[in-house]
Design a protein around this nucleic acid. Structure first.
Lengths: 160, 160
DNA sequence: TTCGCCTTCATACTTTAGGGTGATTTTCAA
DNA sequence: TTGAAAATCACCCTAAAGTATGAAGGCGAA
């Protein structure tokens, strides 16, 4: 879509130029006829050469000029930053609470439910409840799957 | 806003061209008058026209061609390669066998021992044995820890 | 204040994971 | 060919994980 616009614009200019030249030549002819001083053959000759070589110049320029490129270096954040940044949108979308995220985080670090319970100063049963809710929200059956998906979705940071 | 700019630019070019052409024609006229008597002058005259109008064509083409913007996404590899390449040295150092690595891989994908057994066409007990050896070599107690360490050491690819 | 959500905890039960031991077969290199 | 490592499997047992259900207290928004 962009190329066509470009092409049109270019063509328009070229056409305008061609018309302009034609008019000029007619004018010259007319002038020539009016003041018959000069040999008109040389005028036509010169005009033809002018037209042809202008065309040649345009063609050369378009053909040989590498397309002007404006290099825009777009930092690809996706791999680096997105990996390190936690995806809050997904957390909100999946309706995961703060506590559940904490548990998920510790889970991903390889802690057992008992260890997580001790770390968070709650009972083992509480952790189990959090787990069950987490697994439901993440639609998984095991903690290993939960970790896998959580890392993929960016709910928790990757282990680097 | 874009059309007006475009129109202006175009007009400017046309006007400039018109002026240029007018000057050139005057110059030609003058040259013609000067060297009308010389026979060889016609060649020089034609050559000059050719050169000048070729230049004009080139100038026109360059002027009117819009620079094409090419978006080049530059990847930031630095961190990625390390992450994606599996660290064979570590695998060798830890003396982890092919089968154990397979089990470790499937384990990291969230599969249960039973599922891994079915996937590899062996019994559940076999997987348990592999696990026990793996945990010993990785010096961990749980599969979640094994996954964590294995990813850190690059024994298995990260989940991106 | 009432309602909904989060967090907490409990009990009971099932399933899965993991530890320990021993054994057989396979594979591969010395 | 022979020995070591790898891979396989079994049995038994314990620990941990996961399921289901119920319930109570806190806390913020309507």
């Amino acid at each position: 879509m962009r190329g066509s616009t470009n092409f049109l614009t270019k063509n328009k200019s070229v056409i305008l130029y061609g018309l302009f030249l034609a008019i000029m030549l007619c004018l010259l002819k007319w002038l020539e006829l009016r003041f018959i001083v000069i040999n008109h053959a040389i005028e036509i000759y010169a005009g033809a050469i002018a037209v042809i070589f202008t065309g040649l110049g345009i063609w050369l320029a378009l053909k040989l000029t590498k397309p002007k490129t404006i290099l825009i270096e777009k930092e690809v954040l996706s791999e680096k930053l997105e990996t390190f940044l936690i995806n809050e949108k997904e957390i909100i979308r999946l309706n995961i609470s703060k506590r559940e995220l904490e548990v998920l985080q510790l889970m991903s670090e390889g802690l057992s439910n008992q260890e997580i319970a001790e770390r968070l100063f709650v009972s083992l049963n509480t952790i189990k409840t959090h787990n069950a809710r987490l697994f439901a929200k993440l639609e998984v059956k095991r903690r290993t799957q939960a970790i896998e998906i959580a890392k993929k979705l960016g709910l928790i940071p990757q282990s680097h």
